[in-house]
């Protein structure tokens, strides 16, 4: 960890109670630090509300009282150094962390008003309302076509026409249709890395998810493939609510509407992307987004 202790003047008329180093050091020391949430975020209609969410892996707390609304039909980026809990938070949204033994949580999240962690919530039904794309492309060992319609297949949909339609729409939505329309029934394994990742996005949007979770979708891709996936995220904006975890600051600034900066399991600052990147409230956020620490 390398913290730049550069004294800069506070701005925006906000009362500066702690200095840059102070706040991060306080987090490192385990003290509670309030999140700075820009007012614009609160004005937007949320699709997903995270409410005082805590998560422990065994005895180790990984998320500390995260409270943040995710705006509807917007792209929200989660940034922060490695191990800050971005991916854990993302995996908590569709309860993939349930698969890990020894995970314990308090607090709640609400998807369009439905409590995600309600004991009566059917996890499988819940996951059908979301789509997720992982760090490494993980096409299933089947044809391109079957990959895309997987979510419908497991729901028992066997109507050929309906499946064909969803397949084409999703592949078009993922900007992959023109590349694969002639070999839909070939194995998905034969696609390139970038195509595989876009296939995974097509698979994730096939079931019309209420929120799309992207977990560092470009970290295993080369720059050209990354560019295509980023263009795709741009296109998805406005049609889907996207929550994207990224390591790449340029990516966050290019693709997202809102950005949240996390550090060691805590939400430090959350606002519009332009706000976070151009006039952050906290010096720590500025230090991170300008690459001076992290």
């Amino acid at each position: 960890m390398n913290i730049q202790a550069e004294p800069t003047a506070p701005r925006g008329g906000q009362p500066e109670t702690v200095t840059a180093t102070d706040r991060l050091q306080a987090v490192a020391a385990g003290r509670d630090v309030p999140s700075e949430v820009h007012p614009e975020v609160l004005e937007a209609t949320p699709v997903l509300e995270i409410d005082r969410f805590n998560l422990w892996y065994g005895g180790k707390q990984a998320l500390h009282g995260i409270t943040m609304p995710i705006p509807n039909n917007k792209v929200t980026a989660l940034i922060g150094p490695s191990g800050c809990g971005k991916s854990t938070l993302l995996r908590s949204v569709n309860r993939l962390n349930d698969l890990v033994q020894s995970v314990r949580i308090t607090g709640d999240m609400r998807l369009n008003g439905d409590s995600i962690y309600d004991p009566r919530m059917d996890v499988i039904e819940l996951r059908k309302r979301m789509g997720m794309v992982f760090q490494k492309p993980n096409p299933f060992p089947m044809s391109i076509y079957e990959n895309v319609v997987y979510a419908l297949r497991i729901d028992g949909e066997n109507n050929r026409a309906a499946l064909d339609e969803v397949c084409e729409l999703s592949l078009r939505g993922a900007a992959l249709w023109d590349e694969v329309k002639d070999r839909l029934h070939d194995s998905a394994i034969g696609l390139s890395g970038g195509q595989q990742q876009r296939l995974c996005i097509a698979r994730a949007i096939a079931a019309e998810p209420e929120v799309l979770l992207l977990d560092e979708p470009c970290s295993a891709l080369d720059p050209i493939a990354t560019g295509k996936v980023e263009d795709l995220i741009q296109e998805l904006r406005g049609r889907y609510s996207v929550l994207i975890v990224t390591h790449n600051m340029q990516q966050a600034s290019r693709t997202s509407d809102y950005t949240a900066f996390m550090y060691l399991g805590r939400l430090i600052e959350y606002g519009t992307t332009s706000g976070i990147f151009t006039k952050p409230i906290l010096r720590e956020t500025e230090a991170y987004v300008t690459g001076r620490f992290g």
Binding site: L96, L99, M132, F140, P141, C200, A207
Partner: peptide, 17 residues
């Protein structure tokens, strides 16, 4: 790879599926 299982769960598949 576990990523395959997770990908399937994320699509809303059950364990046996």
């Amino acid at each position: 790879p576990n990523s395959m299982r997770e990908g399937s769960y994320a699509c809303g598949a059950g364990k046996w599926q």
